[in-house]
Simulated scan of single mutants.
Amino acid sequence: MNETPLFRSMVAIGDSFTEGMCDQLLPDGHYRGWADRVAERLAAELADAGAGSEFRYANLAVRGKLIGQIADEQGDAAVALDGELVTLAGGLNDVMRPGCDLAHVERTLGALAERLGARARRLVLFSSVDPSRRMRGSARIMPQILRLRRFVGELGERDNVTVVDLFHVPAFDDPRMWAEDRLHFSAEGHRRVAEAVLQALGLPAAFDWREPLPPAPGVSRAVRLRADLRWLRIHVWPWVLRRLTGRSSGDGRPAKRPALDRFPA
């Protein structure tokens, strides 16, 4: 693109990835997240251009949501908000569950993208990072992840759809890109995803989001073992218990920004 694109509004929907889990906590108790970071940059670009309007931003994403829940609980609201820029990420929570019906995931994701793209000036979708080098046991879900990535790529062939492809980026193999739970991005991970989105939209690069971090100090086997045991106790077992009892971390949780309000306030 020859000129920096200006957006006057942004609506983000999805699960914990878009909610911003494990980024820094804001004074209101919500996580910041990559979507907030993108909105901050877009608001600044609009102000610098003297466009004469205020940037508005809504984030309907809620942690733990499956793609059907995203479509049912956030889809109508997102369409009604009529944002110029809409971001949609979902399906990985489905893929991580045994017995995932990927055909259902594709149908639901495709129909939702169709609805959102029909109204938005620009729809942003995502291909997830490659977990195969980072997560033990990820071989079970790799066929579904690769299939979903291909499907999202096909959706990205439409004129007003942009796919942010995080898959072939070795920097995301670094544990420092991830929070203690090893499922959600750290603040540095969210910073990188935000920059990836902004560059995909055609904004000037602020830094190279693909560049590896400097080498980390070595960690002893004993320290790694203690970290693994803590991870199992604090994060894995509660996740398993929720699956067994049919509960979700997002049950009863409202969206952090349900209205398309001025941003920053």
Rank of each mutant, 00 (worst) to 15 (best):
R134G: 01
L155W: 04
M142Q: 12
R150L: 10
R136P: 10
A118I: 06
R134V: 09
Q144R: 14
S127I: 07
G137M: 00
M142H: 11
R133K: 13
V124H: 06
S128C: 01
S138M: 15
P131I: 06
G156C: 00
P143M: 01
L148M: 13
L155G: 02
V124S: 07
S132R: 15
R134K: 08
M142E: 11
R134N: 11
M142V: 11
R150H: 11
I141M: 09
L148W: 08
G156E: 11
A120S: 05
R140W: 10
M135G: 03
P143K: 04
L125M: 07
V129L: 03
E154N: 04
I141V: 15
R133W: 02
L155H: 14
R140S: 11
F126K: 06
Q144S: 14
V124Y: 00
I141E: 00
V129M: 07
S127H: 06
V124W: 05
R133T: 01
G153N: 02
F151K: 14
L146D: 10
P131Y: 09
L148A: 00
R134T: 01
D130L: 09
A139K: 15
R122K: 14
G117S: 07
S138F: 14
R133S: 15
S128Y: 13
F126E: 02
L125I: 09
D130S: 12
M135R: 13
V129H: 03
R149L: 14
R147C: 02
R133E: 03
S127L: 08
S138Q: 10
S138Y: 02
Q144W: 04
R150A: 15
G156I: 00
L123C: 12
M135Q: 08
V152M: 10
V124Q: 03
L146E: 13
S127K: 09
R122Y: 01
M135F: 12
R150P: 00
D130P: 09
F126T: 02
L148D: 01
Q144T: 10
R150C: 03
V124M: 01
R149N: 15
V129A: 07
R147I: 01
R134L: 14
A139W: 14
D130H: 06
L148F: 09
M142Y: 13
G153I: 00
R121L: 06
D130W: 04
R136I: 13
R147K: 13
S128T: 12
R149A: 03
L123P: 04
L146G: 06
A120I: 02
R136V: 12
M142D: 10
S138W: 05
L123H: 08
G137C: 05
R121G: 14
R149V: 01
M135N: 04
R140E: 15
R147Q: 09
R150E: 15
M142S: 11
P131L: 03
F126G: 03
R121T: 07
G117A: 09
R147S: 15
P143W: 06
I145T: 00
D130I: 11
M142P: 03
G137T: 05
G153V: 08
M135W: 15
I145A: 06
L125T: 08
R140M: 12
S132F: 12
